[in-house]
Design a binder for these strands. Structure first.
Length: 157
DNA sequence: TAGGCCATCTGGTCCT
DNA sequence: AGGACCAGATGGCCTA
């Protein structure tokens, strides 16, 4: 299984993935070939959230004002005929909503980190972006599915 | 310097 | 009513 996985990542490396996997060309994939040490790592990421966060300076909170929704600014997402309910929120409520949104995005990123650890990658200089993580996961799942089907066809009943 | 990626804010709908 | 979810806007950081 290890050698098969290596082939998968190697194919990814060469960017000659079968068309059926529908993999788009991306920058991080190109980086595999330029990586100084083409070692395959499973579940090992040289990048951590702490490092990533340390690189960023937290954005100062935007000016907080009492929110009065402007229904002319943006239409409903795919629900143009829905009755629009006016909702007035206070500054405190807006701040609380911002905190909840940050927590939600944090948990989303944790899930992405977990997915990054599940997909086979080389030792990247850069970690996979979210979109590349999803794409590689799709490729990986497709590959493993094909592998399973081949094994079930070859094994005598 | 342009483009990619991401964090954050914001206001909309959906759902309980 | 309020939290969850979503998508657009914005701005910072990084890399080619």
């Amino acid at each position: 299984m290890d050698s098969t996985l290596f082939c998968l990542v190697k194919d990814f490396n060469l960017m000659d993935f079968p068309q059926k996997y529908n993999m788009g060309s991306k920058q991080q994939v190109d980086n595999i070939t330029s990586s100084p040490n083409n070692q395959m790592h499973l579940n090992v990421s040289p990048w951590s959230r702490e490092r990533d966060n340390a690189m960023r300076i937290s954005r100062p909170a935007a000016q907080l004002v009492t929110v009065t929704p402007n229904f002319n600014s943006r239409g409903a997402h795919g629900h143009p005929n829905k009755s629009k309910r006016r909702r007035i929120i206070t500054v405190v409520q807006r701040q609380a909503a911002n905190v909840r949104e940050r927590k939600r995005m944090f948990s989303l990123n944790e899930a992405f980190d977990e997915l990054r650890r599940k997909v086979p990658t080389f030792a990247y200089e850069k970690r996979l972006s979210r979109i590349d993580t999803l794409r590689l996961a799709i490729v990986y799942i497709s590959f493993m599915t094909d592998l399973l089907e081949q094994n079930s066809q070859n094994s005598p009943m």
